[in-house]
Simulated scan of single mutants.
Amino acid sequence: MTGIDAGHIEALARRLGVEPRQLVLAAARLAREDAPAPGADAVLATARRPSTAARHAAELMTTPVAGFALDDVDRALAATWPHGPT
């Protein structure tokens, strides 16, 4: 598979009773190399009842990187010039 096969991910998510984005996060948790992998059952249980942080992480997956950069620039400018340029 060379890319994300959305149809297969959605079908598997339905079969497992999780949201597709949470399934992708669960797969990432299982594939981590820097920590011992938790069991698949534990990861799926967490995916079925995602925390607020997990929901936010899943939402970030669909946000373009450029959007983050623009948000950071906007925040930096607002901090530097709270009343706008003069």
Rank of each mutant, 00 (worst) to 15 (best):
T2V: 07
G3D: 15
I4N: 09
I4P: 06
D5M: 04
G7D: 14
H8V: 15
I9C: 07
E10T: 11
E10V: 09
L12N: 12
L12T: 15
L12D: 12
L12S: 12
R15K: 14
R15T: 11
R15L: 08
G17K: 01
G17L: 02
G17S: 03
R21E: 09
Q22F: 01
Q22N: 05
L23Y: 00
L23P: 00
L23K: 00
L23V: 02
L23D: 00
L25Y: 01
L25G: 00
L25R: 02
A26N: 01
A31V: 07
A35L: 14
A35V: 14
A35M: 14
P36I: 02
P36E: 13
A37S: 15
G39D: 15
G39I: 06
G39S: 15
A40G: 04
A40K: 08
A40D: 11
A40E: 13
D41G: 09
D41S: 13
V43I: 09
L44V: 04
A47L: 03
R48A: 09
T52I: 12
T52V: 13
T52C: 07
A53G: 15
A54R: 05
R55P: 04
H56K: 11
A57W: 05
A57E: 15
A58K: 00
L60A: 13
L60C: 09
L60W: 04
L60I: 05
M61F: 07
M61D: 09
T62K: 04
T62N: 12
T62V: 12
T63W: 08
P64V: 04
P64N: 08
V65D: 08
A66M: 09
A66E: 14
A66W: 03
A66V: 10
L70I: 10
L70E: 12
D72G: 11
V73P: 05
D74K: 07
D74F: 03
R75G: 02
R75M: 04
R75D: 06
L77D: 06
A78T: 06
A79V: 04
A79N: 06
A79R: 08
T80H: 08
T80M: 05
T80W: 05
W81F: 10
W81A: 05
W81S: 02
P82R: 06
G84K: 02
P85M: 04
P85Y: 06
T86H: 04
T86R: 07
